[in-house]
Amino acid sequence: MKQADAIKTYLAQQIEEIKLGAVTAGQVSGDQRLIQDLGLDSLDYATCLLGCEKWLGIKVREEGVDWSQIQTVDQLAQFLEAQQPDA
């Protein structure tokens, strides 16, 4: 099982790739909002999520998820941490 910090690091790399280097991993901090601050759109967000699913070997369970509550890098990392089977 991967901890939220490790997931956050991976997310930062994902965001750098998705933004084609317009944002570097080093510039990404936990309290930044994915859409408003980092400039991701819904497709970027979905791509990011899918990349994490592949990396973590999980399938995100959608039931009861309130996506409006998952806005920052930290929130997404914590959400993904909790999605792992051993969590």
Binding site: S42, L43, A46, L49, L50, V60, E62, W67
Partner: peptide, 12 residues
Amino acid sequence: AVPSPLLGQVVA
């Protein structure tokens, strides 16, 4: 297509 919780489907 692969299912996406946010967009329904995305391209793989």
